[in-house]
Amino acid sequence: MRPEDVTHTRRVRLDSVARYLHDISQDDLQASGSEDAHHPWAARRIIIDVLRTCKWPTTMTLTRWCARATTRWLSIRVQLTDEHGGIIETETHWTKINPITGLPGPISADYLTRLTDGLLDTGARWMAPTTPARDDLQRRPFPLRASDADVFGRINASVYLQAVEHELHRRQELVDKPHRMTIDHHSTIRLDTPVQLLIADDADAVDLTFDVHGTPYARARVSLI
Results as ranks from 00 to 15, higher is better:
L144P: 01
G153R: 12
I155M: 07
L198T: 01
D201F: 13
D148K: 04
T193S: 04
A203F: 02
K177W: 14
A157N: 13
R190K: 08
L197N: 11
E167C: 01
I183G: 08
I183C: 12
D148P: 04
K177V: 09
F142H: 12
T182F: 15
D202N: 07
T188G: 08
V195Q: 06
A205L: 09
A205Y: 14
D184W: 11
D204Y: 01
D150W: 03
I155L: 06
Q196W: 14
D211K: 10
F152D: 03
I189G: 01
I199V: 10
L144V: 03
D184N: 15
I183H: 10
D192Q: 01
D192M: 00
V151R: 13
H185N: 11
V206P: 03
P143S: 08
A157F: 09
L208Q: 14
D148I: 03
D207F: 12
Q196E: 15
Q196A: 12
A200Y: 08
T182Y: 15
R145I: 05
E167V: 02
T188K: 13
E167D: 02
V164D: 10
E167L: 05
R145M: 06
L198M: 06
A146G: 04
R190S: 01
S158H: 02
D211H: 07
D202Q: 11
D202C: 01
D202E: 12
I183W: 12
P194K: 02
V159F: 02
A200E: 09
R154V: 00
R190T: 05
K177N: 11
T188L: 13
L161H: 03
P178C: 02
R180A: 00
F152A: 00
V164Q: 10
D176Y: 15
N156Y: 03
H179W: 09
D148F: 05
D211G: 05
D207R: 11
T182D: 15
H179K: 08
D211S: 07
F152K: 00
M181I: 10
P178G: 06
R154S: 00
N156K: 12
S158M: 04
A146Q: 09
L191E: 00
P143I: 14
R190D: 01
D176P: 08
P178R: 08
L144Q: 03
Q162I: 04
